[in-house]
């Protein structure tokens, strides 16, 4: 079975950012360095929040611009990063129209969502969900 992380109701988001911390915790550390999800306000918290996650594109633009083929097409959409091939050029960041490629400045490599759904488990307000992709 293949899954995809989806934002099902962004209006319910309260900006707690538990998802962002969960994403880095998945790697067994605290902080935000490895997070592949972001929450920010729409120009002030009074207007609500934007939750940025990888859409799991079937024809991902990030992979198209990777000159070392470090981003491999994932079954069901999105990409898988091969850290050993990645040279940290950052072209993938510019290529993603929803800005869902994040940057780990500690190792100079992108953070790519693997659609594991760990973040959704910590969303208490039903904003995120791991969906089945056919």
């Amino acid at each position: 079975m293949v899954y995809r992380l989806a934002v099902i109701d962004v209006e319910r988001c309260v900006g707690c950012e538990l998802c962002m911390f969960a994403c880095s915790r998945r790697f067994g550390e605290g902080g935000l360095a490895k997070s592949a999800i972001a929450v920010r306000s729409i120009g002030g918290v009074e207007r609500g929040f934007i939750v940025i996650v990888c859409r799991a594109c079937s024809d991902p633009p990030c992979a198209k611009v990777c000159i070392v083929n470090a981003l491999m097409i994932r079954k069901g959409g999105g990409v898988v990063l091969n850290q050993y091939k990645c040279i940290g050029c950052g072209r993938c960041i510019d290529a993603c129209p929803v800005k869902a490629v994040f940057w780990n400045s500690e190792i100079n490599k992108p953070n790519i969502c693997v659609h594991c759904g760990y973040c959704a488990k910590y969303c208490p307000h039903e904003v995120l969900k791991l969906e089945k992709v056919v």
Binding site: R25, G28, E29, G31, A33, K34, E106
Partner: peptide, 14 residues
């Protein structure tokens, strides 16, 4: 900032 925070034992931390 977006630092990472290392912990001695990831399992215990989680």
């Amino acid at each position: 900032g977006k630092h990472s925070i290392k912990v001695p034992d990831s399992r215990v931390y989680r």
